[in-house]
Simulated assay, not measured.
Amino acid sequence: MDKVNFGDQLVTPEEKTRRVGGVFSSVAGSYDLMNDLMSGGMHRLWKNRFVAKVKPRPGEQILDMAGGTGDIAFRMAANGARVMVSDINADMLEVGKKRAETRGIHGLSWQVENAERLSFADGSFDAYTIAFGIRNVTDIPAALREAHRVLRRGGRLYVLEFSTSEWPGFGELYERYSEHVIPRIGKAVAKDEDSYRYLVESIRRFPRMEQFRAMIGEAGFKSTSVEPILGGLVAIWGGWKI
């Protein structure tokens, strides 16, 4: 059986899916705090920019895959969109539900889903979003094909993810920071150094910007695009089902 990367380790696809689930069950309770600490709060600005690109409209049906704790869904719901928040990890969804209840955010749907094998019918959604989740999917091409399938004709895909900064020197600096500092923050705050070491390794192994843009096109999307942030440390990809 072909092996796949779980961070820097080679494991079976089934083992990767199981172990990724374990990572996010472990970090669910501290996930949002860790995002603030690791990015200096910048993840909030990146997510605002991402939702501005999506342009959610009142009444639209949007699937927010790997939506976990609700950060993207809350922003889109504020614009009147009807959002299905889906994640393979039930613990992450529970955190999101509690956050929505605390904030008085209503009208969201929550459902456990595997991005590679969605239960939704063809043409169910106007938009598909996934933020900081696609790199953890075992079979990324399968997930992109499923995104294409569940979108209506004229629907749009948007992906927010870490990539590799092309700014001279900055990429190397961030590499050292992520390798040596982030796992220590994970150990101190989340009491889980190994999970954050995996998350760093998964970023390092994610395709570069144009390579991932090509993968989106291979899944059937047209008018594909990529917008780098911080030279590509983070990027927003888009594509349309035509």
Results as ranks from 00 to 15, higher is better:
186 G>L: 03
135 R>P: 04
235 A>H: 05
209 M>R: 14
236 I>R: 03
41 G>N: 10
15 E>S: 07
225 S>K: 09
97 K>I: 03
195 S>D: 04
219 A>I: 02
70 G>P: 03
15 E>I: 03
193 E>D: 08
76 M>L: 11
119 S>C: 02
24 F>L: 10
105 I>W: 05
192 D>K: 08
71 D>P: 02
223 S>E: 15
220 G>C: 06
78 A>R: 15
163 S>H: 14
115 A>D: 13
122 D>V: 01
188 A>S: 12
107 G>R: 10
129 T>Y: 10
112 V>W: 01
66 A>Y: 06
27 V>Q: 11
41 G>V: 03
156 R>V: 05
101 E>C: 00
117 R>G: 07
164 T>W: 07
195 S>C: 05
237 W>F: 15
230 L>Q: 04
236 I>Q: 02
210 E>G: 00
175 E>Y: 07
190 A>M: 07
199 L>K: 13
137 V>D: 13
235 A>V: 00
64 D>H: 12
215 M>L: 14
200 V>G: 05
142 A>I: 00
132 F>R: 13
144 L>A: 11
220 G>I: 00
59 G>L: 07
96 G>S: 08
145 R>H: 13
79 N>D: 14
17 T>P: 01
152 R>L: 14
39 S>Q: 07
101 E>F: 00
58 P>Y: 06
26 S>Q: 14
198 Y>F: 13
100 A>T: 03
50 F>W: 11
84 M>I: 01
102 T>H: 11
48 N>Q: 14
140 I>Q: 15
143 A>S: 14
189 V>R: 06
35 N>E: 04
81 A>L: 12
221 F>Q: 13
182 I>S: 06
171 G>D: 02
118 L>G: 11
32 D>H: 09
112 V>M: 05
59 G>Q: 11
4 V>I: 09
120 F>A: 08
39 S>E: 07
155 G>R: 11
112 V>E: 09
1 M>S: 15
52 A>V: 01
54 V>F: 06
79 N>H: 13
189 V>C: 06
110 W>V: 02
155 G>M: 09
95 V>Y: 01
146 E>C: 09
164 T>M: 05
215 M>A: 13
204 R>W: 13
160 L>T: 01
225 S>V: 00
52 A>W: 05
50 F>C: 03
23 V>T: 06
9 Q>H: 13
53 K>W: 06
75 R>V: 02
47 K>P: 05
142 A>V: 00
112 V>H: 03
51 V>S: 06
123 G>Q: 14
57 R>F: 06
30 S>Y: 06
152 R>K: 15
37 L>V: 02
186 G>I: 01
150 V>H: 12
208 R>Q: 15
43 H>Y: 14
233 L>W: 00
21 G>P: 03
38 M>R: 03
164 T>D: 11
135 R>F: 04
28 A>R: 10
215 M>H: 09
9 Q>I: 01
158 Y>Q: 10
179 E>L: 09
93 L>F: 08
